[in-house]
Amino acid sequence: MSFIHVDNVWKEYTENVVLEHLTLRVKKGEFVTIVGASGCGKTTFLKMLLGEVSPSRGKILLDGKPLAVEPGPDRGIVFQRYSVFPHLKVLGNVMLGLELQQSRVLGRLFGDKRRLAQQLACEMLEAVGLSHVLDKYPSELSGGMQQRLALAQSLIKQPLILLLDEPFGALDPGMRADMHQLILTLWRNMGLTVFMVSHDLKESFYLGTRLLVFDKVRHDPQNMNAFGARVTYDIPLGSVDNSLCQEIEKYSSPKQIVANLE
């Protein structure tokens, strides 16, 4: 049985179609990477899974039930930026999820409950390699460490789905490779279902078990926004040859889309 069921989903804004005809089944434990040219709706799709944006038509089911139309604790997210709270120290950022869950009025824990939350948060931070900076503010951390923190913060809630919106886009290549190892380890150990939007095709091939390419198949030269993007490739990874990779690269680069129009 599929875990996530996207059934003929469209997203339109008045005269602007972003996504059309999206149908998709995703099993538990898949690592779905999503690529496509800028403005092809991959982030919109992620926002729909998040509940920040609701589909204009069609429906999305999570575990057989319609997806909540606002963000909730069953879906964790790491953005490219602004994922961690600047006013909380590293430990506080990770404890926040536990505090919000257990204390519905003050959002703070005291005594034994607080110690337990601290301990859990420390273990999570250990797993992402941040146990040496518990007492620092996020602004004192490097970009890579901030993203590790954002991961730890989301994962302590044990979400059913982890959504990643170009999480490594702002990192330098060395840091990015470290983060790839980390996310793969966490994904395997915690049995996560991951959706990751990326600009980087190589990264998407390397990390994912399944690659989705979003692109527009119909073009109206008079009206660029008349048609939305669809999933043009849905590739189970592990058995991909290089030529396919080049083909996708060719068709999903913005230059090529303009060339096609002309």
Binding site: G72, G97, L100, K157
Partner: peptide, 11 residues
């Protein structure tokens, strides 16, 4: 992003 993040943490 921060407001959404807080909601995904159960706030």
């Amino acid at each position: 992003e921060l407001l959404i993040k807080a909601q995904t943490l159960g706030a």
